[in-house]
Design a protein around this nucleic acid. Structure first.
Length: 787
RNA sequence: GGGCCUGUGGUCUAGUCUGGUUAUGACGUUGCCUUGACAUGGCAGAGGUCGAGGGUUCAAAUCCCUCUGGGCCCACCA
């Protein structure tokens, strides 16, 4: 072994070795029980960020443990690279506009850029932190296979009458120019103005409304007041005149109105929010649609045509002020709904969209959620919370280019919805053709241009991966494990459970392991704008991938972890310590062959401690609590093993003539076993250094190609308490203290008097004690005398 | 407004579910030790009202209640 461990060289070497020797290969023919992982497909975004490194490392810990338990691991890898996020990334990277380029050309560029530039580079980052996927089982959410599964899902749900297309007011992002779903909303606090506006009425008395969106005046269709509001009772049923627009609207009684908010009178526009849409439907009012898809106003807005909301608001306030129609302007701090991808305030537009009907299934979804094994348990609350708060059916159509197309055409003659044949999939309705209309036999049709919401596909990952092995699909689906971070419980987890229920009436996975977030050193969220981003690639350069993983292992399951560079420093030191301790051990194990007839007392004690450690680590891993394994093993290795045990056995190892050959053999045996065990316990967390050391010595002995497919240490369920080692440590510690207090080297010889009452207990380890403390030992009253 | 998590020496943290001798470890800090794996080391020291208050108990960091700081998710009045 080299004197120094070179992590860069070593990590590269073993990464290649694992790939070449297919260490992580899934074996479809094996009879071993399968452990399958529904790996999160990361959204292709240029570079892996520290949050990825954090959560993928954590799932890899538990997978590596299961692999060593002898399970047949099905650990695929996918990338999520269709839909809005990818479009936005490629528009930015290539400095192009999807709208300007047109669909065909844009899709071509997306596919090419993904294939040749983004994806291959991106995946390397995951390989560099030793994610032990079977990289041969690879999918992307835009590939033909995923398209087929996703379109098949659409057809199935349509046939179940779970999908419908409807022209309806729905949430719309004017920046991305597409409809979005409830889950894509993000709250943003904003300072704005609350404008009080006077409306003339048929009562010849004015009524004052309050609004944050005066620019929607041209779309005002009604005014609402509470039926019991004394101020306004008289107005009910009367008409109000809209300033600038020669129109009158009715004043309605509406129990939804809060008399204490604003002026107590609401002006009702098309559409300020989703409630406006509800009122319109309820009262059968004719909407006035004033907004274009890009968020600007159309001709119905009169002089405000072509302006966007912000510009129109400024102008209309000015105009109203000139006419003296504004009675008050209040500053207001309120919450607006924005699109989580771009931060743009959403609008409500009347458009044709596809929906999955599922609000009627809330109860069933809650039941499905409670059937999952949640780690940690409390994360289920977030799921329940989300399901209970669902208000709208799932809008799955997006008015974008790069995504999975709907397998749908519309008959030009009779408007019938024409579905693709399942055998035809995947189809692109813009290129492929349907069979003649079954109703009217027409061959004229219009293709659906919209694409599916990216979550409509990524919610099928268990089915996508399981169907790659058709013969095994029943064993692979449901998956054993769904690992993911808590921020996408409402997105990915819920959608997957929902789809799996809709299709198969069962859960898509059994265990759910939720990881937290990587935060900056102060515990704040990392973001580019704050400039507190930590680049995992740089940390790997500086400290090694093992060190980065070691840091990731310090988080308790489900909890956020602030990034601490000192953890990486500590990890690097641990790696170094492992190297040196192994170096020392192997130099004394060259002539080691078999177990001795009898083990020394202190060796028995260490092995018992080791047994306890294995028990604890195994039980912790069974509960997915990798951090406990990390802490316990690190402490045992550094403290018990290195600081005490190695010092105790040195004399036996170096001086067999004096101490006896059997005594040396006992130490060798214990050393052999305990180091191997430590390496194995740590191997899921730091796979590179443990492999490097294993290959130096143990691989041949165990006739195993890699520590990562070697057997996880077994333990005796019965642990027997032996106090002898703890007593030894106590004595050694006292001796060291005296020597240190006297500024002496620990080698300094002493006369040690031990308590008479301990004589019987300590007799078996007397020689070891003598050697490690460099003492002459007597019994009497405890005393340390420097010679 | 609803739900959930969280507050331990200067910093990060174990322990909390299953209450029990001087509260774990790391970083930092102080002093010493160049000892035959390792100075990226070893040994020892200083440093803690376990967020605050109340309760249960022989006994509380741990269980219960109230308050308070931090965080996350959800809802929201135009």
């Amino acid at each position: 072994m080299k004197k120094q461990y070179d992590s860069k060289e070593s990590e590269k070497k073993w990464k290649n070795y694992w790939e070449k020797n297919k260490i992580y290969k899934f074996n479809p023919n094996s009879k071993k029980p399968i452990y399958s992982i529904d790996t999160p497909p990361p959204t292709v975004s240029g570079k892996m960020h520290i949050g990825h490194a954090f959560s993928y490392a954590q799932q890899d810990f538990v997978v590596r443990y299961r692999r060593m338990q002898g399970l047949n691991i099905f650990y695929p890898f996918g990338t999520d690279d269709n839909g809005l996020p990818t479009e936005r990334l490629i528009e930015k990277e290539k400095n192009i506009s999807a709208q300007k380029l047109g669909r065909k050309e844009f899709i071509k560029i997306c596919l090419q850029t993904l294939e040749k530039e983004l994806r291959p580079k991106y995946i390397q980052d995951w390989k560099s932190i030793a994610i032990s996927c079977d990289w041969d089982i690879f999918y992307t959410t835009i590939d033909k296979h995923s398209q087929r599964i996703s379109q098949k899902s659409f057809l199935d749900l349509y046939k179940q009458k779970r999908e419908y297309r409807k022209r309806t007011p729905f949430m719309w992002c004017p920046e991305c120019q597409t409809a979005i779903a409830q889950v894509e909303l993000e709250d943003k606090e904003k300072d704005s103005q609350f404008i009080y506006i006077k409306f003339q009425t048929s009562l010849n008395k004015p009524i004052t409304i309050a609004t944050t969106r005066p620019e929607l005046m041209p779309a005002c269709v009604a005014i609402h007041v509470h039926p019991d509001d004394k101020r306004y009772k008289k107005f009910i049923g009367k008409k109000a005149k809209i300033p600038f627009f020669n129109r009158e609207v009715e004043i309605y009684a509406n129990k939804d109105v809060d008399p204490d908010f604003g002026s107590g009178a609401v002006y009702h526009c098309t559409f300020g929010d989703m409630d406006d849409a509800e009122w319109i439907e309820k009262l059968k009012i004719k909407p006035i649609e004033v907004m274009n898809k890009d968020g600007t106003f159309n001709a119905k807005a009169g002089k405000y045509e072509n302006l966007n909301s912000k510009q129109a608001r400024k102008e209309i306030i000015q105009d109203l002020q000139e006419k003296n129609l504004i009675t008050k302007i209040e500053p207001i701090h309120h919450v607006v709904n924005t699109h989580e991808r771009c931060g743009t305030e959403i609008e409500i537009l009347m458009t044709d969209q596809w929906f999955i009907k599922y609000l009627d299934l809330k109860k069933e979804f809650l039941k499905q959620g409670s059937k999952l094994n949640w780690y940690p348990k409390y994360m289920k609350n977030r799921y329940d919370n989300w399901v209970k708060g669902l208000k709208y059916d799932w809008c799955i159509s997006r008015q974008r280019f790069f995504g999975i197309p709907f397998p749908v055409w519309y008959c030009n003659n009779c408007n019938e919805i024409l579905l693709a044949d399942e055998k035809q999939l995947p189809v692109d309705p813009l290129i492929d053709k349907p069979k003649p209309c079954p109703k009217c036999k027409s061959k004229e049709f219009t293709p659906e241009k919209d694409v599916l919401d990216t979550w409509a596909t990524s919610s099928l990952t268990p089915q996508i991966t399981a169907s790659l092995f058709p013969k095994l699909s029943k064993k692979l689906y449901p998956s054993t494990l769904r690992p993911q971070a808590h921020d996408i419980i409402s997105f990915w987890l819920f959608n997957t459970v929902a789809k799996s229920y809709l299709h198969n009436k069962k859960n898509p996975f059994k265990d759910v392991v939720i990881s937290g977030w990587a935060l900056d050193p102060k515990g704040k969220k990392m973001s580019k704008s704050k400039g507190n981003i930590v680049e995992p690639q740089e940390m790997i350069q500086q400290y090694s991938a093992d060190a980065l993983r070691f840091w990731a292992a310090s988080s308790k399951l489900g909890e956020d972890l602030s990034f601490q560079e000192k953890e990486l420093v500590a990890a690097k030191k641990l790696v170094n310590k492992l190297w040196n301790a192994s170096n020392f051990s192997f130099s004394h194990l060259e002539d080691y062959k078999t177990k001795p007839k009898k083990l020394e007392t202190i060796d028995l004690w260490l092995l018992e401690k080791l047994n306890e450690l294995v028990k604890e680590c195994t039980e912790a891993f069974e509960r997915y609590e990798y951090s406990k394994t990390k802490i316990e093993t690190e402490n045992f290795f550094w403290n018990t093993f290195c600081d005490y045990y190695l010092e105790i056995i040195k004399d036996r190892l170096y001086n067999p003539d004096k101490r006896g050959k059997q005594q040396k053999l006992s130490a060798q045996y214990t050393l052999h076993i305990s180091l191997l065990t430590i390496l194995k316990l740590l191997s899921p967390i730091t796979p590179f250094i443990t492999e490097e050391i294993y290959q130096h010595y143990y691989a041949k002995k165990e006739k195993c190609k890699s520590i990562h497919i070697s057997e996880w240490p077994k333990f005796n369920k019965k642990t027997t308490k032996t106090e002898i080692g703890d007593k030894a440590i106590e004595i050694i510690s006292k001796v060291r203290k005296i020597k240190t207090q006297n500024n002496l080297s620990l080698k300094t010889p002493i006369n040690l008097t031990l308590d008479k009452k301990d004589e019987k207990l300590l007799k078996p380890i007397l020689e070891d004690l003598k050697a490690v403390t460099n003492a002459e030992i007597n019994f009497g009253k405890f005393n340390i005398e420097i010679v």
